Simulated scan of single mutants.
Amino acid sequence: MFNEFGKIIKLTTFGESHGTAIGGIVDGFPAGLPVDLEAVQKELDRRKPGQSKIVTQRKEDDKVEFFSGLLEGKTTGQSIGFLIPNTNQKSKDYEHNVQVFRPSHADFTYTQKYGIRDHRGGGRTSARETANWVVGGALCKQLIPEIKIQAYVSSIGEIQLNKHYTELDLSQVESNIVRCPEAPTAEKMIDLVSRIKKEGDTIGGTVTCVVQNMPIGLGEPIFDKLSARLAQAMMGINAAKGFEIGSGFDGTRCRGSEHNDIFIEGGKTLTNHSGGIQGGISNGMDVVFKVAFKPVATIMKEQSTINERGEASTIHGRGRHDPCVVPRAVPIVEALTAMVLADFTLLNKLRKI
């Protein structure tokens, strides 16, 4: 139950970071949809580890294998099953923390809740799980091809991309390893992450997501607002610590006369402080939101902690870890956005039957 995401299109996932494989089942997909498997793999390649000098050097090809729900390149309407083998685990890197809790990880809470935890990379708590979400999102992107979803890195540490997305060439997101669409800012970000990595430390940042060609009417009143479902999805990402949509927290400094989006002919608005959602329902304007990510918890420095008996201890990070999770979070943000939008799109179609 708690390994499932979505209501009409449902993704159920399984697997651990250092297990044999991770994978999932996608239910609710309509039959007869052509599926571009290369496009799915391309999305996984954007998320996979070892892709540049500023991410974890764990070498995983992340080659997805589909074993049900597809026939001759089309969906059958049945459950779509897939598997992503783990091929480069180094469980010995985690032998040092069998008896102690890593600060700001889920070690302590999992032990208290379940009485047991997988110390090898965190098991189900590992961000390796997000590869499953990227598969689900890549399929959903093909269900709603008319909707354009583009995320990008808008800050790392104190380095901010202080431009509105309409001033940027979002086609340049993949032109550099940090996934920032402005080259000068991207270089500063890369230098900062490289320096932080050499220091054995980590750093956080933000990802901005822009959704264009949005239809009017996605989202439900009260408990299933589009904004609420997006927030739930984004806050489920490992290391996510904040979500804001439209004007977000900056809007709290405005007056209503400044913040209201004034309608013009055709149903458009002069401004988009609402972020494309009003009353929990898309209004046809671009949906724009931002997700904040904390610094990765594992650092290559000694820290104070406690052991499983509650006694004072120390721990020193080892193994292969991201100095900054933000660049690899970009395809994850897009994937979950696609799953939410595809879910609401099918709901609207069911209403018309």
Rank of each mutant, 00 (worst) to 15 (best):
L11C: 12
L11I: 13
T12K: 02
T12Q: 08
T12C: 07
T13G: 03
F14T: 08
H18P: 03
H18I: 10
T20W: 00
I22H: 00
G23K: 01
V26D: 12
P30C: 09
A31I: 02
A31L: 03
G32A: 06
L33V: 15
P34G: 12
D36M: 04
V40R: 01
Q41R: 10
E43P: 11
L44C: 08
L44N: 08
R46F: 02
R47L: 10
R47Q: 09
P49M: 03
G50Y: 04
Q51I: 14
Q51A: 10
S52Y: 02
I54D: 06
Q57L: 11
Q57H: 11
R58P: 06
K59Y: 09
E60L: 07
E60P: 05
E60V: 14
D62A: 12
K63Q: 15
E65S: 04
F66E: 04
F66A: 06
F67L: 02
S68Q: 06
G69Q: 03
L71S: 14
E72R: 11
G73R: 00
G73V: 08
K74W: 01
K74Y: 09
T76G: 05
G77E: 05
G77R: 00
F82Q: 05
F82M: 01
L83S: 13
L83D: 04
I84C: 09
I84K: 01
I84D: 06
P85K: 03
N86S: 08
T87M: 07
N88S: 15
N88M: 02
N88F: 06
Q89Y: 00
Q89D: 14
K90W: 01
K90H: 12
S91M: 01
K92S: 15
D93K: 00
D93P: 06
E95R: 06
H96C: 07
H96V: 07
N97F: 00
N97S: 14
N97V: 15
V98H: 08
V100Y: 03
V100I: 15
F101R: 00
F101H: 02
F101D: 04
R102S: 02
R102P: 00
R102I: 08
P103C: 10
S104R: 11
H105E: 12
D107S: 05
D107H: 05
D107A: 03
F108Y: 15
F108L: 15
T109D: 08
T109P: 01
T109A: 11
Y110T: 10
Y110P: 02
